[in-house]
Amino acid sequence: MAVTGFMLVCFISVHLLGNLSVFFGVDAINIYAEKLHSLGPVVWIFRMAILLLFAVHITFGIQLTVENSSASPEAYAIKKRLKTTFAAESMIYTGLIILVFLLYHLLHFTVHVVHTDAVSAVQTLVNGRPDVFTMIGKSFNNAFISIVYVIAMCALFLHLSHGLQSFIQTFGLNNGKTQDIVAGIGKLAAIFYGLAYIAIPLAFLFHIVKI
């Protein structure tokens, strides 16, 4: 879980950096998208590797949940939560929300089979490049789409707020002094990822970034 989780965090970091280019005008994200597509087979190899990572991460996650619930089949009449968090307890659920979102996200922005009216903007050229910026903007001007993305990113925030500090522990990089610091930094980083990703749909929805 920790190894694939760490690699997926690397992926979402790069993905976020690319996506934040929407805040730097029409050309910024269009140039980024064009460069990405010009890599040709490399992009596809990369995409396949990411999908494989997701598949392994999800499979291990489900296996872990099944094994752990079989190890504790009986529930206490009363159980006090001592240290664990809602985020830690809901990892499988936030993970599954992210999985459903991932499929939706791919159908939306990669395969272009949902919200076709908004994504059709990518067919037009701006400064000789496919207009990815308007495709994103038109999509997120739709409140339903934006809300779906915001909910999914809240799930990502919860997932990361446990996951980030958890992989440091699993890799054995913690000691008694770093335990709480790592947990704090993990939560702050999760807040950063969550807010940064949520900023994109909300910026278009509230017309802070205009198409």
Partner: peptide
């Protein structure tokens, strides 16, 4: 022996 896997809840340390 049928014990579960650690997913870093840290309830153990508190208990």
């Amino acid at each position: 022996e049928g014990f579960g896997n650690c997913t870093n809840h840290y309830e153990c340390q508190e208990a």
